[in-house]
Design a protein around this nucleic acid. Structure first.
Lengths: 209, 209
DNA sequence: TCTATATATTGACGGTGTCAATATGAGGGT
DNA sequence: ACCCTCATATTGACACCGTCAATATATAGA
């Protein structure tokens, strides 16, 4: 009963002497992200997240219908962060289309290499709820940004959607391979970014950028 | 006791009156593939596969160390089949590089659309054992085939590995999106193959094919 | 203050992977 | 033909998982 009279403060972990958490949803997302980064998607289990947040195993049910909903919220959060990162970097880029698309590609690659488990999660469509509005909005944000760039520097031979899908596919496929390098071990000798730069150049040329 | 005296025959399911199965490993792979096709990767569980093969839940342990090993064997088998399919189709293709690469891309796309769960599995590196020699060999077979085609029609501006990675990434990324279409619903209006043809053309042009 | 409602706990259920102990039978050496 | 070894299959247990129902508690609004 001792620490009772303090004002309501946002807290990360549940104080041990309180029944209600007060900020559980946020705490669950934080805990889940930590588990994701540390041990991968499989480690993000309802019960493990609850333990980490200091609540019992059934408490998360009040905030996420099921595990899929939790993972979906995570993915939406990650997409949103990626979006703001890309926006920021595009703000500081020159006006040439190739340079701007390179910013996009490099942002995806750097993000994937820095947080592979987060990258894996946002592409694990089988584990996510594609109909979730928050997820769809966050994802469309990035895609629409790409479309916008491609529409600005329009070329007649391919429509922007085709070019966006091509570039997006390209970048995603390449980043995937870099992340899961073991299966194609030794194939990509270049440890820095020249190869990915070359690839972006190649696809840009093909798309008539 | 009745059906006892027949000669040893390869069988799919375990006869109910025998203790040893006689061909369990193969039967497990068959059962697992069926479950995979029907209900996805999550449905391919050790116990479900065992049930389908008509043995008890611990029997598979004699043939696969764990679930990962089972999935890896499946993926290797799928890769091998894909390889022979591509080889066969390339055998009937013309000598022009673009046509041959188009065969490769179309084979991947058709396979992905026809058996999406198999396609998903072979890219679920987190669920597979990348160090498994059978899997590595099967996968390298396809990759090396691609390298061979690209080396034949060599161009100086990009080395074959860069071009292979680009094309492979491209095709994989695109097929993934077609399969999981829900998240990018409505974005790819073309239901047939013209868009994928356009994309292959684009990447080929970019790669200087 | 009283009460409705949101939130958290407790406990149970069936499913899973995996391990250890046991049972069975196929095949090789004599 | 026998035995014996060893691969293979069964039984049973354990911990963990997601999910549900019943219960307890605290917050907020009348």
């Amino acid at each position: 009963m001792s620490r009772s009279s303090g004002p309501r403060i946002k807290r990360e972990a549940k104080p041990k002497d309180s029944y209600h958490h007060g900020n559980l949803r946020e705490a669950l997302v934080t805990a889940a992200l930590a588990l994701l980064d540390e041990d991968g998607i499989e480690a993000v289990t309802i019960r493990a997240v609850a333990r980490r947040a200091g609540v019992t195993h059934a408490a998360p049910a009040n905030h996420f219908r099921d595990r899929r909903a939790l993972l979906t919220a995570l993915a939406a959060e990650i997409f949103a962060g990626l979006r703001t990162d890309i926006d920021r970097k595009l703000g500081g880029a020159g006006p040439e289309l190739e340079a701007r698309l390179r910013v996009f590609a490099q942002a995806m690659l750097r993000f994937g290499l820095a947080a592979p488990n987060r990258y894996r999660l946002i592409w694990r469509w089988d584990a996510l709820d594609g109909k979730d509005p928050a997820l769809a909005t966050a994802m469309d944000g990035i895609y629409d940004r790409l479309i916008g760039e491609l529409s600005a520097g329009a070329r007649a031979d391919f429509d922007p959607h085709t070019r966006a899908i091509a570039l997006w596919s390209m970048v995603h496929g390449y980043v995937s391979m870099r992340i899961e390098g073991n299966l194609l071990a030794g194939r990509d000798k270049l440890s820095g970014e020249p190869r990915e730069v070359a690839i972006v150049s190649a696809i840009l040329r093909g798309l008539g950028a």
